[in-house]
């Protein structure tokens, strides 16, 4: 199993969620974050004060998936989050030592398998 961490544009979040839903990826965490991905700084002016906004609003997705879901999850994010401009974000795929599902105490692959499929096994 893997932990997929994606940093994307906030205005692409709806597209990504829709694409993940279509790919039958269930169970994820979304958080608003700020970061810098090499894009041009936004310049803003407040009265006489001009500032460069070094940090951009981004959204971080964290998705724990079983091996079978890694590829389609990454593909869904890449397809939906891309604009072609600098600042589209990154997808990281991380190895995970252990996963525990709190409700049932299931571990590892079982813990990141959606309920419907888990019941079938």
């Amino acid at each position: 199993m893997k932990l997929i961490v994606a940093i994307i544009r906030p205005d692409k979040l709806s597209d990504v969620l829709e694409e993940l839903y279509r790919a039958k990826v269930r169970g994820l965490t979304v958080s608003p974050v700020q970061g810098h991905g090499g894009e041009l700084e936004k310049v803003e002016t407040y009265r006489g004060m001009t500032v460069k906004m070094e940090l951009q609003e981004k959204v971080r997705l964290e998705i724990g998936v079983s091996e079978a879901f890694v590829e389609r999850t990454v593909k869904a994010i890449l397809d939906a989050a891309q604009t072609g401009q600098v600042g589209d974000g990154k997808v990281f795929v991380l190895s995970v030592d252990n996963v525990h599902r709190i409700r049932t105490g299931e571990v590892d692959e079982q813990a990141v398998t959606p309920m419907s499929e888990g019941a079938a096994v």
Binding site: Q34, K42, V43, E44, T45, T50, V51, K52, M53
Partner: peptide
Amino acid sequence: DVVLHGEEGYAKGEGAVLVRP
């Protein structure tokens, strides 16, 4: 707000670097 006015309604100010005081 950002594109047309160069401002944000709810700017947090984190990561803002002063260009001209």
